[in-house]
């Protein structure tokens, strides 16, 4: 542990501020709570929102898992895990089932989460309407009025132009039937895991200074139209390592001729299946 800093880096005043904001976030599902985001020792855009949420939650008994793109061993995930071992001295794990807290960027683990686990998302842009309306003063008003026509028009225009909705990740959802919410840039493949999840899900956007939450067992609906229902991405392939046919797959270029193979994005899920197969 680095003795010059408080447990989990943040000072207690900052943790209290975060904790108050998190409780309000849970009380108003999908609503973006502004918070006094701090400069963290990692750059904005690299998970500072998730890190602040994790730091506000973390206790000595926690076991932390950090994933980026589904993998525990990507450099940024390693770096965040390393940061918390250093400033909080807590245990870390790569196994989804062993973790009490899971901080993630861009994926939800394939393994179903439990009620005693909390999933913390790193969020680059919390405002689902931002690309359609850059002004914060405006988007706040649209949320106040639950006026999500802009998004419906955008999705409808996709259908008119391409025959289907051309959004493949960060696919907007309606939480508890009220707030239009960004699920963070997870592939839409993961969207169904948000709906009525047993685990609490917290979202932190450090640079944009917003927190939000999806409580357990809360309705999360991916936007769609009656004649164009929400559709999941499917592969014609299986994972080349574990043979899984229902997980999210990464495409890997394996030689100079552009040959491809497909492997699970969730490295813990994949290695778990391989161990099981050998047993």
């Amino acid at each position: 542990m680095t003795p010059r800093y408080n447990f989990a880096f943040l000072d207690e005043d900052t943790k209290r501020m975060l904790r108050r904001a998190l409780l309000k976030a849970v009380a108003i599902p999908g609503y973006q709570v502004p918070f006094g985001s701090r400069e963290m020792p990692l750059p904005y855009g690299w998970g500072t929102g998730g890190i602040q949420v994790t730091a506000a939650l973390l206790g000595p008994d926690d076991v932390l898992k950090v994933i980026d793109q589904g993998a525990d061993d990507t450099t940024n995930a390693v770096n965040i895990r390393r940061f918390f071992s250093r400033v909080a001295g807590i245990a870390t794990t790569e196994h989804t089932t062993d973790a009490t807290l899971i901080q993630t960027r861009h994926r939800i683990p394939e393994t179903s989460l439990r009620e005693d686990q909390i999933l913390i998302f790193q969020v680059p842009e919390p405002e689902p309407l931002r690309t359609l309306e850059p002004r914060e003063a405006e988007t706040r008003t649209l949320h106040a009025l639950a006026d999500y026509g802009l998004m419906h028009v955008k999705l409808y225009e996709d259908i008119a132009q391409y025959g289907h909705i051309a959004t493949s990740y960060d696919y907007p959802v309606l939480v508890d039937g009220r707030f239009l919410t960004s699920p963070s840039p997870i592939p839409k493949f993961d969207n169904p895991k948000l709906d009525r999840s047993p685990a609490l899900m917290l979202f932190g956007a450090g640079r944009e200074k917003r927190l939000y939450a999806i409580p357990p067992y809360t309705s999360v609906e991916s936007l769609a139209f009656d004649d164009h229902p929400f559709e999941l991405q499917r592969w014609d392939h299986q994972c080349a390592l574990c043979g899984s046919g229902d997980s999210y797959l990464d495409e890997v270029v394996v030689d100079d001729h552009g040959a491809r193979m497909f492997v699970c994005s969730d490295t813990d899920y994949c290695s778990g299946r391989r161990v099981e197969a050998q047993a």
Partner: peptide, 20 residues
């Protein structure tokens, strides 16, 4: 123990708010 007592209390409050 202000740091850890408030951390443990907060986690219960968070779960309480998440599971009304």
């Amino acid at each position: 123990d202000p740091v850890f007592d408030s951390q443990r209390t907060f986690r219960e409050l968070l779960q309480a708010m998440a599971r009304p």
